[in-house]
Design a protein around this nucleic acid. Sequence first.
DNA 1: TTAAAATTTGCCACCGGTGGCAAATTGTCG
DNA 2: CGACAATTTGCCACCGGTGGCAAATTTTAA
Lengths: 342, 342
Amino acid sequence: MENKTNVTINDVARIAGVSKRTVSRVINGSDAVGKQTREHIEAIIKEVNFQPDKQARGLASKRSYLLGLIYDNPDALYIDQVQRGALEICANLGFELVVHPCQWENQDFIEDCLNFIGRSRVDGVLILPPVSESNLLAETLSKENVPYIRIASTDLEDSNNIVITKEREAMRELATHIVELGHKNVAIITGPMNYHSSKERLGGLTEVFSKHGVVIGPDNLIEGKNRYESGLECAKQLLTRSPRPTAILANNDQMAAGVIRAAFDLGIKVPEELSVAGFDDNIIASRIIPSLTTMRRPVEEISRLATQKLIRNIKPEPNASNKKITVTPYLITRESTSHVKK
Amino acid sequence: MENKTNVTINDVARIAGVSKRTVSRVINGSDAVGKQTREHIEAIIKEVNFQPDKQARGLASKRSYLLGLIYDNPDALYIDQVQRGALEICANLGFELVVHPCQWENQDFIEDCLNFIGRSRVDGVLILPPVSESNLLAETLSKENVPYIRIASTDLEDSNNIVITKEREAMRELATHIVELGHKNVAIITGPMNYHSSKERLGGLTEVFSKHGVVIGPDNLIEGKNRYESGLECAKQLLTRSPRPTAILANNDQMAAGVIRAAFDLGIKVPEELSVAGFDDNIIASRIIPSLTTMRRPVEEISRLATQKLIRNIKPEPNASNKKITVTPYLITRESTSHVKK
DNA sequence: TTAAAATTTGCCACCGGTGGCAAATTGTCG
DNA sequence: CGACAATTTGCCACCGGTGGCAAATTTTAA
């Protein structure tokens, strides 16, 4: 462990008996270096533990080796998973991750993001839902030539900068599960309907339900806010209606947890008298009693894919294919859903 | 919104009709600038939305305006709160936050951290528990002259670089609560006993219990791993012992959630037959049924304080006092604890 | 009024790398 | 074997700021 002094490129060059330009070429994997020269220099770099200064490199090459993570999501568990996935890729490719939470419904949010990008000099940004749904942000970044990747639920006509989670398809699977359990009287708590993702998820459900005679109308459809408290409140409304639904599907796990609490408070047994399902499979889904049937979104995997794509957008590799990336969540069946009682 | 072109210090200097050195002085708040010159330049900076390049600044001044966040904590909710607190301060003081999860029990963890610091050129690091308990890391950073702050539960003889959470005192409060509820047969699931924090929390509990005749011995003390699964397993052991404890105190909320699950699986009613308490007040504590009595750790506040202190250590202000910072968690009473039945 | 001191400001080198282009070296072929 | 092409390598300017020091200006003191 001799991390002591900061070795510079000049030191390496001097030791190797070459010019620093050649060392620079080696660092950057340029092909125009003789084989033995390269190996000699690489050995020395390893030996003296030379780590090129990101500041200087950035200044000269217009690259900071920093990635920004832009989000406005109350779900800490989701963010954490994204970070882990992204960092795994960053570590491999020599990037660092700078986090930037924001308020995407504020008026100055675009400016705030641009300022962040300007200040921090990140080479590109990863944009998480729901911020990823802002076409204005995407267009602005395009115009400013800032590489970005959006993680989102639909194509949004921006397919080269997006990783798509097929939420509509996922919800079809969930709806099928519910139909198979014999539920006819199903209620849905959607997310905020100005989110694409809420529309996609609802769409997937109703497609299947309508084919099987499960009617979704104003009486059993309610718009939630994706938070626990909101799920609690919406469920209290739904559960006092008559006829009482035998299943409630919430737009995410947080709200589903609220539904379970509401049922508990009203003395309604889950799943015997009420089936409940969520979306995300965040940690709460497996901790709550009864544990929650939900759609697992492989967040870490999505994040890894998105980060790779982002870095490839920043420094294009010739041989890399550039196809659209999609991921589909899948059903996790737990205690909160069961056959409807006759 | 005219973020378009990247304005440089030369542009500002030219527009203001001064040298860039003078503009630099204004940016850095040097006192050696004439009042009207300063105001003139400041106006122009605002007008053209000049944002000094962090790379260049860093290269020249040996400062990156980046802070590192080092942690190895499975609890995403805790990390998220820390980030929010830290970012609030960073935003005010012109810093960015770079995250670095690690495996502090790996052999090369010190080297890994040093490499991270070297690579990213962070100006200082915030170290979260349990990594903060590593005296070796702290000493190494001292030796390398890297500013750091540890968030930890005891003084660790490093008081100028530490923000202390008084966990022992907190646990006294919890123990008192349990004693007041009449419990005599109490079991404890500790954290890993090689963590200071686990010792502190256990110490606080036993201090109070021993004064009130509540005996803690091998029969009702078990070492957990701070995770849900561990709480589940430990509780299953404790709850099949005879006499069965009337209260189980877990070292954190994750394990307490496991205890509640174990009780549920064994048909033991909480809180009627068993009181349960945790530590942290993370989100799961209020979501679970029954909701969890716990000690709230004001994580965001702690993080803000730590970040401020860190930045002050990086660029010392003359008038800033430099006293020790401590925070004490406090009791949140919910559904999972009640009077012991006679 | 003038010299000396204090305050402001500007010049220039430098931080540690990268990029363009020319120079040096090696290889190829008639 | 010499001329020419291809491959390697080095020189030097530059990225956008900061720091030291001297120069210019203003203030104070005699």
